[in-house]
Design a protein around this nucleic acid. Structure first.
Lengths: 199, 199
DNA sequence: CCTACCGATCGGTAGG
DNA sequence: CCTACCGATCGGTAGG
């Protein structure tokens, strides 16, 4: 009946920011409470414990990625365009959730074994999403047949994930700018001699 | 006179592993001492404090990168080959120092302001190394003139740095295998239509 | 390198 | 949401 949702969301927002800036273990519940103008013990009227915060932040982040990427599977698009769109959406999730994305990449090792296993499974799913995308591209003749889908997926994921370390929302580049430049470089190659293999 | 060096190195090795697995703040000095079969207080016969360990691990890692990459500046090589060699060396440093590389990427935010500033400067230097490499490649006509050196450097750094999350030493792929595949993909592009720009 | 200890701080709870 | 408190653990030190 009582509207505790907004307060919970304030807590989660502050926790995301503090965990991303200082790390999970270096953030005390009193630090967090102070950000919200309350005493340490008062937090426990809204949450059951510190780890619940981490679990929710990580779950929320992985859900954002899922909701952005998985609908793409069903779309009837050329592989090049689909890769470009996937990278755009992926980078947009990172850009729109810089704090929780940072927590997601840095602090998931502190989850309980059960929640930890969830993240490992999730990572495999995202990996497979990009591997399948590459494989489809090869089969439809859009991507080079010599590509290793696993390594190609690693390369793509490197680009879109690493953005959490340098991207600054509000700067001159939108997520679409970044994705377009990355996709151009990945699809066409850096070299002027592109069209020939390797060295 | 007394040979404390090896013991210090054992401590640093164990600290690298524990900090990478559990994080800096979640690793207690007693955890660390236990790994080495001693009591918590005994560590302080060899080190001055916990942060000294983090500073040394991070400094060591950045030095490894410097020593691997900077000599390349002077070498007279084509840009494509130099990029390939830089990526190989960069990935080799990550692969040979998985623990300290992980600590380097995840825990540097816990450094004191002074050591923190050092890392920020270092990051700029590495960034400039790759930007210059790209710029030279453009000038010598090996790389497309339409490339943005800054974004290209981000893409390259994404690939070589992100390897810390998935590479497994002792697995089927050597650092050279990874670097060669990445360099092939980056230089020649994923698309079969490479040679034309963008979409 | 150990024993024994220090003050500080931690996450969390009781009772209101 | 606060006050007051709990046991546990932290990094580090003294003295040997």
């Amino acid at each position: 009946m009582s509207d505790t949702r907004p307060r919970r969301e304030q807590i989660l927002d502050s926790a995301s920011r503090l965990f991303s800036e200082r790390g999970y273990h270096a953030t005390s519940m009193r630090d967090l409470a102070g950000e919200l103008g309350m005493q340490g013990g008062s937090l426990y009227a809204h949450i059951t414990g510190k780890e619940e915060l981490l679990v929710e932040i990580v779950s929320h982040a992985s859900r954002q990625f899922d909701e952005a990427l998985f609908p793409l599977r069903a779309l009837d698009m050329g592989a090049e365009e689909k890769l470009r769109e996937a990278m755009h959406r992926h980078i947009r999730v990172v850009a729109d959730n810089m704090d929780s994305a940072t927590v997601f990449f840095h602090e998931w090792k502190h989850l309980s074994p059960q929640a930890y296993a969830h993240v490992v499974t999730w990572r495999d799913t995202i990996d497979r999403f990009y591997r399948d995308l590459v494989q489809e591209g090869i089969e439809e003749g859009a991507f080079r047949a010599t590509l290793d889908p696993r390594m190609t997926a690693h390369l793509i994921l490197s680009a879109v994930n690493w953005a959490y370390t340098w991207y600054r929302p509000g700067g001159p580049m939108t997520p679409r700018d970044v994705a377009d430049q990355y996709a151009d470089m990945l699809l066409s190659g850096l070299g002027v001699r592109a069209g020939q293999e390797g060295t």
